[in-house]
């Protein structure tokens, strides 16, 4: 006799999954917003600074990119409070970690975007008498946004999937919801199949929306 699929227990606890996917989205949205601020600020500083500042920013980027996210989450949630006597809840800790993580990837995205702005456009801005800040605000950033939009979309999808790691510190997002149901019903195949579909559908929906946005703002030359 083979394994009998039964989804009854899953549907009975489905709210754990729907609440979970909403929280996952929230975590990803907050992380990409804070991460974009970090990334943009550091990218602007990077392109207009000397070697020392660049080295500091690069070491942040390299540190984050070469340490597994899971480890960063543990470090931030278990390690940091031990060292600096600071208490914060799991969600806050995870948002902080994921934002710093996103920031490191987005520094690179924005930096290459800023450097991809055609020099002729900056010359045109200079020639009309725009100050460096005005050139950044009215020429560089708007042009860069269009160049970096596809990379931003990809980062957002990655972050959405990375929110599953928050389950290890009991943040009740989608994967945590799946584990919760599994621990009580032992319907391991069913619950993870449903969860997989939920990640897939949500991920595709986000990607579809972002691609529409990209087309709307496509760079035309």
């Amino acid at each position: 006799m083979g394994y009998q699929l039964s989804f009854n227990q899953i549907w009975r606890n489905f709210d754990k999954l729907t609440n979970g996917v909403i929280l996952s989205l929230e975590l990803a949205v907050i992380a990409i917003l804070i991460g974009a601020l970090i990334g943009l600020a550091l990218a602007v500083i990077y392109v207009s600074s000397g070697r020392v500042v660049r080295a500091i920013i690069s070491s942040y980027v390299e540190f984050i990119r070469n340490v597994p996210l899971l480890l960063l989450v543990y470090l931030a949630f278990y390690g940091l409070p031990t060292v600096v006597n600071l208490a914060y809840d799991a969600s806050t800790s995870f948002i902080a970690t994921l934002s710093l993580y996103a920031g490191a990837y987005l520094v690179e995205v924005f930096r290459s975007g800023l450097e991809a702005v055609p020099k002729g456009l900056l010359d045109a801005g200079k020639a009309m008498g725009l100050t460096p800040w005005q050139r950044l605000l009215y020429v560089r950033l708007p042009t860069m946004t269009r160049i970096t939009l596809p990379a931003l979309s990809n980062t957002f999808i990655s972050l959405f999937k990375d929110t599953s790691i928050a389950s290890v510190i009991a943040v009740p997002e989608l994967t945590w919801g799946a584990q919760w149901i599994n621990n009580r019903t032992f319907r391991i195949v069913e619950v993870y199949a449903v969860t997989t579909v939920m990640y897939l559908v949500t991920g595709y929906a986000i990607l579809f929306g972002l691609r529409l946005l990209e087309r709307r703002f496509r760079v035309e030359r």
């Binding site: 055609p118 002729g120 456009l121 010359d123 045109a124 200079k126 020639a127 009309m128 008498g129 009215y138 020429v139 708007p142 042009t143 269009r146 760079v219 035309e220 030359r221």
Partner: peptide
């Protein structure tokens, strides 16, 4: 620079 105007070979209009 605002006292001089410049027109470029490759137009350089803000896209």
């Amino acid at each position: 620079r605002a006292e001089t105007g410049m027109v470029f070979q490759s137009f350089n209009l803000f896209p």
